[in-house]
Amino acid sequence: MGENITVSEAISKGKIKLVYLPLFLILVFIGVGVYLKTIELIEDWMMAVFAIGGFLLAWLAWSYFVVEWKIWAFENVRNVHELKRKAIQNNLIWKDDSWFNKTEIINYEHKQKLKLLERKFLEKDVYHDDITVPKETLIHYSKATIAFGIVFGILFLSVGIYVLMENSKNYCYLFFLGLGLYFFYNSIPKLINNQPQIIINAKGIQFYKSSLMEWEFIDNEYVDMRRSGKHVNYYLVFNYRNKHQEYHIDELAITPEKLEQLMRVYRVRFEKSNF
């Protein structure tokens, strides 16, 4: 096992065959159906057949390539726990207890390879220090997010006032005024608050107006990606003294990838200085 591929590289390669290719097949089938319908070679109801056919072919492609990707990725990536978690987050694979795993096209040789690779999950993921990371990192609210909220607040308030002045009996202005006030209500306190929302260093993690949580009592820390339809939210998740903790980070001036890197580095520094 070479273990010379990063988690990000493995995820990127997996997306090509397990996300983009199935999506391409669906779009091609629908496109062909639309074209045939345009030149009047098929009836309207046949569009549903093409859509279903595209979905089934896309699922077949995923079922075939997913096992191949798993074997390659788990063989060549050292941190298999992180890889598996991010593969599930990015919709490359399903959780172990999912019924959809039964649709994988897998032969005896593949089963034996995957069973052998399960041994890698008995070892912890390994991370290293990074000299480019400072002794302490202060994470504030994102200025771009605050500006976005203020701009939309001004926009909706302006529309609401305009509608009110044009026709006070058109109660649509209440909707726009409410939206504008909502954006201001969420943005102004963040604009005024110049304190870091998260402080992270080799001692631990500290949230705004909270006491320090020491690395000694923190475990299973990672950034979780949660989907709700097309919308995605990110949370810093970990256990502290056996209690679940999570913090919404979408409005902070840091990417999920960068925050995970910081946690790995500061965890390594803590362990080096204490063990």
Rank of each mutant, 00 (worst) to 15 (best):
S8K: 15
K13G: 03
K15W: 05
L25S: 07
F29Q: 04
F29Y: 11
G31F: 09
V34P: 01
L41K: 14
E43S: 12
M47F: 11
F50N: 00
F50Q: 00
L56T: 08
V66Q: 01
V67T: 15
E68H: 12
W69D: 04
K70P: 00
A73R: 01
R78T: 12
K84D: 06
I93L: 06
N101D: 03
K102M: 10
I105K: 14
I106Q: 12
K111I: 13
K120M: 09
I131V: 14
V133G: 08
Y141A: 03
Y141W: 15
I161T: 11
Y162C: 14
L164E: 07
K169P: 01
K169V: 13
L174H: 09
G178T: 14
L181A: 05
Y182S: 13
S187A: 15
L191F: 13
I198T: 03
I199Y: 00
F207P: 01
L212T: 11
L212C: 02
D224G: 00
R227C: 01
G229Q: 09
R241A: 03
Q245N: 03
Y247G: 02
H248I: 01
T255M: 11
T255L: 12
L259K: 00
M263R: 05
V268F: 02
F270K: 11
F270Q: 06
S273A: 15
N274W: 11
